[in-house]
Design a protein around this nucleic acid. Structure first.
Length: 384
RNA sequence: GCCGCUGUAGCUCAGUUGGUUAGAGCGCUUGAUUGUGGAUCAAGAGGUCUUGGGUUCAAAUCCCGACAGCGGUA
């Protein structure tokens, strides 16, 4: 069975609908993948992830899982799917990003990166081979290779060095992948990660380097790290111009709803971001009518649903006033309900995008909906 | 009843030998959050310094009275 099947590209742009087939189920794209760093999507249990959100694929993180509980425990458990009782697909990030964002005392070497654990300060080494081995132990369906997430802003010379490092590591990642096998009887796929900061020439070089290695798919990394949104869109645009049509494209760590729609328009298939879950825990709800800061005093006696256009468990059963009360009282249920809602919204957004790509109305819909999505809550003035 | 201690922001409290526009933490209000720390960061509102007198160029600060709270005591 083909891993990737392109179903439709919506002219005149590059938006596409496709199907990814793993041994843990099919994934229709465009797709948003909830982030479950440590073997759990924070505040949302597995049953809810299926029944309330209908996620087909979630993320795990190699850096976090490698440090805790560790590869041995995961192997003893029979892999992450068994360990966390999730029989749908899992994608693992390599931990390249975490080595740079979380750990201290990291030393970048040609063969890998030395770092100290953010948990206990212990010393560790990540090389492409070590990361691939860890991802074999985890047993993720789709694996990310070790890369360097180039910071922003970044001068051309540093970006060039960084891109070359990621390309060199890509070769080693691919070798380690081919010289190892899955441990649990299901197939695992490996992507290559395009780096090169905001420089067109470097992104092109990076993409071409990876294409020679024939990965199962391509990730676009190093974006949404502080650059203006327009710069991010341009970078996505000239990167997807080069990447092959017959493989999935994954924009790592992005983003806001409007970012996702713009990236879909530029030919991206897969997304992940902490925003729906992290912001949910900070009482920040994404809705079809804009952003809802659920702690705001104006909602204390607002007995309407958080989002009247949403069919999620939270919106069909509870009011803004109740949700605000839960947040102010620091009740755990607030985190759960808000997380379910935000994930439901993000998945609905990409499902709707897919539907529109297939029926030919994507671009008009995107422009229309984007204006609503970025709108903040209505002020008293706007209501009148 | 008497003796002592204490009254400063919604709460807990700083506030030098009397000296510019009285501060902090928490809470509250409003933002931010992009390959996850429920974290963090930023900005803002909020005070007749219990009250009435007095001393002084100048009082949250010193003096006298009243009121309130706490502790001790008969």
């Amino acid at each position: 069975m083909n891993f990737f099947t392109l179903e439709h590209t919506a002219a005149p742009g590059k938006a596409r609908a496709a199907r990814i087939t793993t041994d843990h189920g099919e994934i229709e794209t465009p797709v948003f993948m909830p982030v479950g760093t440590q073997g759990t999507v924070k505040a949302v249990n597995q049953r809810s992830l299926k029944e309330d959100i209908n996620a087909r694929i979630i993320l795990g993180n190699t850096y976090h899982l490698y440090l805790r509980p560790g590869a041995q425990i995961l192997e003893k458990a029979g892999g992450l799917h068994q360990f966390m009782n999730w029989d749908r697909a899992i994608l693992t990030d390599s931990g390249g990003y975490q080595v740079f964002s979380l750990s201290e005392l990291r030393k970048l070497k040609p063969h890998g990166v030395e770092f100290r654990s953010h948990l206990d300060g212990s010393k560790h080494l990540f090389t492409p081979a070590i990361v691939i081995a860890a991802e074999r132990s985890i047993g993720s369906d789709i694996m990310m290779p070790l890369d360097e997430c180039t910071p922003y802003p970044c001068d051309y010379l540093y970006a060039k060095k960084s891109q070359e490092l990621t390309s060199n590591w890509a070769v080693l990642n691919k070798e380690a992948f081919e010289n190892s096998s899955p441990l649990y009887g299901h197939r695992q796929f490996l992507f290559g990660i395009v780096q090169g900061s905001v420089y067109k020439e470097l992104r092109e070089k990076s993409a071409h380097d990876l294409m020679k290695l024939d990965f199962d798919g391509h990730s676009i990394g190093g974006l949404a790290v502080g650059e203006p949104a327009e710069t991010m869109y341009e970078t996505i645009d000239f990167t997807t111009d080069i990447l092959p049509q017959n493989k999935p494209r994954y924009l790592m760590g992005v983003g806001k709803p409007e970012n996702i729609l713009e990236a879909i328009a530029r030919g991206v298939d897969m997304f992940d971001c902490v925003m729906p879950t992290r912001n949910a825990r900070n009482a920040y709800l994404f809705t079809w009518n804009g952003i809802l800061a659920m702690r705001n005093a104006q909602y204390k006696d607002d007995f309407t649903p958080p989002d009247a256009d949403c069919t999620c468990y939270a919106c069909t059963n509870f009011t803004r006033a109740y949700l605000r009360h839960l947040f102010i009282a620091e009740e755990i249920l607030a985190l759960e309900l808000a997380s379910i809602h935000n994930l439901h919204f993000y998945l609905d957004l990409t499902r709707e995008a897919r539907k529109r790509i297939l029926d030919g109305s994507f671009y008009e819909w995107k422009d229309l909906i984007s204006k609503k999505l970025v709108r903040k809550k209505l002020t008293e003035k706007e209501k009148q």
